[in-house]
């Protein structure tokens, strides 16, 4: 039986879909059989981020209303033989799937795949409840902004209420320079407030825009810092201990700062 992990955030635009795509591609790149599920019905995007939008024939609601078999709706990635996508419906709304159907779907996918990763829609309404219905673990994505962390806190509370304990936190779009200048909340600040386990820190990186434009996950890019950060997330997800990247470009200077900065 595989593992079902939901990627969620509460706030929109913090990088759920990018995270889902990169974790999926990263796991597949390490030889795991992975299925990505786009639960954002009506506003699907995972297909575009993966560059698979022109291969969609059936979608998640076709499976739940039994218009087609589950295998027919799964789209094989063009780079990894082990990576599959179950796309969301674009011309329907969130109510076209219910939590029970999602649960059954996840059970079916677990039989076939080692990892099932669900891209949750923004918000805390039915789309969110659907997305988490079949999940066993959760990843919460946030950015170092007051609004995003506040929403992450709310989501963590809702996940706990739904018996999804110990969410794993990813802080996306961190700008080390701004943190150093005191103009952005640091990882420590965020962890301090949310009190959950950190599984990844992704630096703000223009390569994410470039690779997303092309429909290729940045995790495949060996040169970029964000790609490296996502590969580390994948390792930690597999239970490996990996040190967090030193995002400070000025090594000596930052160490000096740490000494002075102590309370």
């Amino acid at each position: 039986m595989g593992e079902v992990i939901v990627v969620t955030s509460g706030k929109g635009g913090v990088g759920k879909t990018t995270t889902t795509a990169n974790i999926g591609a990263g796991l597949a790149g390490r030889g795991h059989k992975v299925c990505l599920v786009d639960a954002d019905i009506g506003l699907r995007n995972l297909d575009v981020v993966l560059g698979l939008e022109n291969r969609i024939v059936y979608d998640i609601t076709d499976v739940t209303v039994e218009n087609c078999r589950l295998k027919q709706a799964l789209i094989k990635d063009k780079r990894f033989d082990q990576l599959f996508l179950l796309p969301a419906a674009q011309t329907k709304d969130k109510t076209s799937v219910n939590p029970e159907e999602m649960q059954k779907l996840c059970l079916d996918l677990q039989e076939e795949f080692e990892f099932v990763i669900i891209d949750c829609p923004a918000g805390i309404e039915q789309g969110f409840r659907n997305a988490i219905a079949g999940a066993e673990r959760s990843i919460v994505v946030t950015t170092p902004e007051v609004s995003a962390v506040r929403d992450a806190d709310r989501i963590i509370g809702l996940l706990e209420a739904a018996e999804l304990r110990d969410p794993m936190l990813i802080v996306n779009r961190l700008r080390p320079k701004m943190v150093r200048a005191g103009d952005m909340m640091s990882i420590d600040d965020i962890i301090d407030i949310l009190a959950v386990d950190l599984i990844g820190v992704i630096p703000e990186d223009e390569m994410i825009v470039v690779t997303t434009n092309k429909g290729e996950p940045v995790v495949m890019d060996n040169a970029s810092l964000s790609g490296h950060a996502f590969r580390n997330v994948v390792s930690r997800l597999k239970g490996e201990e990996v040190a967090f990247l030193d995002l400070d470009e000025q090594g000596f200077f930052s160490r000096l700062w740490k000494v002075f900065g102590k309370k």
């Binding site: 007051v146 005191g182 103009d183 952005m184 909340m185 600040d189 407030i193 700062w257």
Partner: peptide, 16 residues
């Protein structure tokens, strides 16, 4: 080093 209590990062943390 821009790390005084009034820096915007700390303001953000306190507001949050």
């Amino acid at each position: 080093f821009g790390k005084d209590a009034g820096s915007s990062g700390n303001v953000a943390k306190e507001r949050l």
